[in-house]
Design a protein around this nucleic acid. Structure first.
Lengths: 151, 151
DNA sequence: ATCACACCTTACGTAAACGTAATGGGCAGG
DNA sequence: CCTGCCCATTACGTTTACGTAAGGTGTGAT
């Protein structure tokens, strides 16, 4: 797998190919690998985003779980809510072209992209406004005559 | 007042100059003027950000209150929390150069600016990532051979 | 047996900025 | 007097993604 694509990886994520040498990872190791807390992993599971095996009560994550987690984190990074991520993941069907899933993901992505662009515009505005304020404040600190002349 | 500066307006905001023709505005009018809800105005008051007069129980906003509200909204726009806005406003002293207030505001602004820049970087990353994902998805939808060749 | 860990579950707490009832007073028009 | 509006207060609800505390299990090492 060379790309970290939201949809492409998803496809690879759930190919239920029981690799002979399936390395099982425990929650602590997972947390380190992905830079998240144990709480987060359990939380994602509680929300139905991951479903690790169990050895007794101990969670064991497979390669597929790692791929899914990667997707979740990518989704979060680009601003999707966990609910959206779940919706998209739930649409995945190992047998098929997943045209439906891809379309839905694409639609959601377009909306999200629009949100991000809008956010960017607002952010730029905020930066500009704040910049102006700071300039003004500096001027006022430099010499308190400026405020008088303005009045 | 020509600029909408965070600090400059603040200065003008509290100049307790009892204008002869002090127009009193009621909450409904204020809400319309500034595009906020009544709840918001009452909330800001509850948080100690504004202190309108009262005619019986009815709130009456003066010119100064409007200036303050303007500041609050500007602060919010550039991402300050209401708490921060309050802190800065509380530091304002009608009699004096307000060097202290300006310094504090400037410090806070610098930190906020850093946050905004960081946010911008993250946002740009997110946009780039999402863009890649969307491209990949489109490719997969165009011809489902891509995913095979990738494997 | 006792430690030190790593793991488990349950469940309340948090942050921010209001939204949204629910309930009631006061005033002008008809 | 009734209705409609604007205003008021109190106070619980909402959202998201976990943090954090409390208490318990299991395992290998000392």
């Amino acid at each position: 797998m060379k790309t970290d694509n939201l949809m492409a990886d998803h496809a690879a994520a759930a190919t239920g190919k029981p690799h002979e040498t399936e390395e099982l990872t425990r929650i602590g190791e997972m947390a380190k690998l992905f830079g998240v807390t144990l709480r987060t992993l359990r939380f994602y599971e509680d929300k139905g985003l991951i479903n690790p095996q169990r050895d007794g009560s101990t969670r064991l994550y497979t390669h597929r779980d790692k791929a899914r987690l990667k997707l979740i984190l990518l989704g979060r990074k680009v601003g999707f809510s966990l609910r959206d991520v779940k919706q998209m993941m739930d649409l995945y069907d190992p047998s098929g072209s997943n045209a439906r899933q891809l379309k839905v993901a694409l639609e959601k992505s377009e909306k999200q992209m629009a949100r991000l662009q809008k956010q960017r515009a607002l952010l730029d505005e905020a930066i500009a406004d704040l910049s102006l304020s700071m300039d003004e404040a500096r001027r006022m600190l430099a010499g308190n005559t400026a405020q008088q002349s303005a009045a």
